[in-house]
């Protein structure tokens, strides 16, 4: 009777409860305590690089490296709470974050991009500011063919956005954006699809796309051409560090992984993702303070 059906329903509930209990019972040791496993979380820009470095590290050391994404803020928060052994952040640490130690594993430049058919060849810093704050709304005002400017801005919370705004001294509320985008590839696609668009993305990604034939143009900044070579040489003015972050000084095996990620053994992986190895750029006289206490 009714009981049969009710027991069917309770059976299914019991299935779930049992599954949860069993899995909770035999759960593996918490990530942070395990000596043979490392968990990294954070920036989606650093994650693909860290995952590739992790595979190589795993092959030589036998220590498992699990990389998860979620953004720089999440990386810092997880490192702080012990949910991750190492956090990943695509920006330098700021004031108030002194409890964390950061280690630069690569650098990435940010450049302004326009459509390839746009005759504008350069923009001064002042012009960039006026365009992004809406004071210049027509390409005719900066030497281009007359036509409306479509400003492509990054979404709140993206470290590229923070770095760009800081460099040009703009407040995000002043930005008159027509399009708000998330990742680099999305920004490139948006600008490539609209003749009057202007945006800013990672130089590595833009260089790669332009080489593939995507119709975009990388504008020089303060007369320095936007190339990974110039980021490497430390000449390009707008670059950001890609950092590994730990709470306090890193313990084993995180220490070993960080050393490995900063060694020459992974430079090919860094370059393969259109980024610039960190130590090289520092050796070339980068203006920023040396790691590991870079902030």
């Amino acid at each position: 009777m009714t009981r049969t059906i009710l027991s069917l329903a309770s059976l299914s509930l019991a299935t779930l409860a049992a599954l949860l209990l069993v899995t909770a019972g035999c759960r593996p040791a918490s990530s942070s305590q395990s000596a043979s496993r490392l968990v990294l979380t954070g920036s989606s820009t650093v994650a693909p690089l860290a995952a590739e470095i992790g595979k190589r590290f795993e092959a030589s050391s036998g220590i498992r490296v699990d990389v998860q994404t979620g953004g720089s803020s999440r990386g810092l928060a997880d490192a702080r709470q012990g949910l991750a052994d190492i956090g990943m952040a695509s920006r330098a640490l700021e004031a108030g974050e002194e409890d964390l130690a950061s280690f630069t594993i690569a650098r990435d430049g940010i450049c302004v991009i326009v459509h390839r058919d746009n005759p504008v060849a350069r923009l001064s810093d002042a012009q960039v500011v006026e365009i992004f704050t809406g004071r210049i709304a027509d390409w005719g005002a900066v030497g281009g063919a007359p036509g409306p400017v479509t400003v492509v801005n990054k979404a709140e919370g993206r470290s590229t956005l923070e770095l760009f705004l800081k460099h040009f001294g703009i407040d995000n509320r002043q930005v008159r954006a027509s399009v708000v985008i998330g990742d680099n590839e999305q920004g490139i696609k948006t600008v490539a699809g609209q003749a009057g668009a202007v945006g800013y993305v990672s130089i590595g990604a833009a260089e790669h796309a332009a080489a593939r034939g995507v119709p975009i143009k990388l504008l020089p900044m303060r007369s320095v051409a936007a190339t990974t070579a110039n980021v490497r040489g430390g000449r390009y003015p707008l670059a950001r560090p890609l950092n590994l972050v730990t709470l306090g000084e890193p313990k084993e095996p995180a220490r070993r992984f960080i050393d490995f990620a900063r060694s020459e053994a992974v430079h090919d992986l860094v370059e393969d993702l259109s980024l610039v190895p960190a130590l090289e750029s520092l050796a070339a006289g980068e203006a920023s303070r040396p790691s590991p206490t870079e902030s």
Partner: peptide, 27 residues
């Protein structure tokens, strides 16, 4: 994590996440 999973306790990347990552994150 894009490693071959050894058990259900391992992290494993789903197809949709792989597509997303390749589409927006990887030049």
């Amino acid at each position: 994590v894009d490693r071959m999973p050894g058990s259900v306790h391992d992290s494993g990347r789903a197809l949709s996440i792989h597509i997303y990552d390749l589409g927006v994150n990887i030049p």
